[in-house]
């Protein structure tokens, strides 16, 4: 019994996984678009309060992985959400696709590091920091952020890391766990052989 149930679960992304990931990304793409003007309003202050909110733009990747738990889910979600944002005429245009790709890779790296087996708060936070690091890498070239006065640069980086840790890490994890309690995630991750073994028969 346990074997037949377990073997049905494919390792790669199935059509269901892809569609669920993309539909979730559409929701996040909408949020990403709305987030833009808000971020821009805070930004002219120059004191990087807006960086605390930046983590929202990494959330699709971590959140989708925590639900799907397969290789590629984080990248797909992050690129898709970025694509939706670009379609909706987001103020960063097509460049969001590059950001999405790198941020997705940054998150994916940490999920891969744990062989896609861990989906707890620690790995979620690490993945969110991976996304943040990837985004800072592009911003160093795009925004010359390393040419800010040192205190300002340090403030920028710590605010962004803190924001992504809280939003894309902890909040995404809490949201995914709350969704699991609704039982809807069982559609995506049917019981595995390990679950049956745990029953002890």
């Amino acid at each position: 019994m346990s074997m037949s149930t377990a073997s049905k679960r494919s390792k790669g992304l199935t059509l269901t996984d892809i569609l669920v990931t993309i539909v979730i990304s559409v929701v996040f793409g909408l949020i990403y678009k709305i987030w833009g003007p808000m971020y821009d309003l805070l930004k002219p202050l120059g004191l990087h309060a807006e960086q605390l909110s930046y983590g929202m733009w990494f959330m699709a990747g971590t959140f989708a992985f925590l639900l799907i738990r397969k290789p590629g889910a984080a990248i797909l979600a992050e690129v898709s959400a970025a694509a939706i944002e670009a379609f909706l005429g987001g103020s960063w245009g097509i460049s969001t696709l590059w950001y999405g790709l790198f941020q997705g890779l940054g998150a994916e790296l940490f999920f891969a590091l744990f062989l896609y087996r861990k989906a707890g708060p620690v790995v979620a936070v690490l993945a969110s920091l991976g996304s943040a690091t990837a985004s800072i890498f592009i911003d160093r070239h795009y925004g010359y952020i390393d040419q800010l006065a040192f205190w300002n640069y340090a403030l920028f980086i710590s605010m962004r890391l803190l924001g992504s840790l809280v939003i894309a890490g902890l909040f995404a994890w809490a949201l995914a766990r709350a969704l699991e309690r609704t039982g809807v995630v069982n559609l995506l991750r049917p019981a595995s052989a390990k679950d049956y073994d745990a029953l002890g028969n």
């Binding site: 569609l19 669920v20 993309i22 539909v23 929701v27 949201l175 969704l179 559609l187 995506l188």
Partner: peptide
């Protein structure tokens, strides 16, 4: 808002995927 909306999204996507499959 977020939990019911996302749960419904997943259910709907799952059904659509079955039809597409």
């Amino acid at each position: 808002y977020a939990i019911p909306l996302l749960a419904q999204c997943i259910r709907r996507a799952h059904r659509t995927a079955a039809a597409m499959e």
